[in-house]
Design a protein around this nucleic acid. Structure first.
Lengths: 72, 72
DNA sequence: CAAAAAATTTCCCGATCGGGACAATAGACC
DNA sequence: GGTCTATTGTCCCGATCGGGAAATTTTTTG
């Protein structure tokens, strides 16, 4: 997980796994449909907070693993 | 790890742990100093891709844990 | 394969805001 | 006071975001 396209792909994958349409997930996340389209496409300039809101709406947790430490 | 302020705090913590100044990390990440200041402060509207670039420059890996799955 | 239905993507528009450089300011520490 | 780091103000071009609908692609169905 290092670039934005990977996030986009994962979000799309998880959205489909949950049987949601783009407009449904967008509404549930509090973002616009166009934003979600761009996020799933891997647009790097999307807003950080909104991207996190989408992940939260999907029930995803984000872990940052620092070099030399255990996940937490 | 659910909101932008948590990311900002973690980034600052890790930057200091690595003995870097803000301008050094900003340069190493390819972002402006102002961006890094805002990121560490938890500004939610910063660009996603740049935030990931900073994490990458710190050597941090980002895992997204999907509900009901193992990390990967 | 064709037609229909569903889902996704693009377009239009402009108010809003990001974030770059640079300099000035504020803390911290000795 | 002197020095180093962090933060903020200003200027300002260019990009983001959104809502709704059209256009396109994908999926379903006969």
């Amino acid at each position: 997980m290092d670039d934005v396209t990977a996030f986009g792909a994962l979000i799309r994958q998880e959205r489909k796994a949950q049987g949601l349409r783009q407009d449904e997930l967008a509404a549930a996340s509090g973002v616009g449909l166009r934003f979600l389209v761009e996020l799933e496409r891997g647009k790097p300039t999307v807003q950080f907070g909104k991207a996190l809101a989408v992940l939260a709406a999907l029930g995803c947790r984000v872990d940052v693993v620092r070099p030399g430490r255990q996940p937490g």
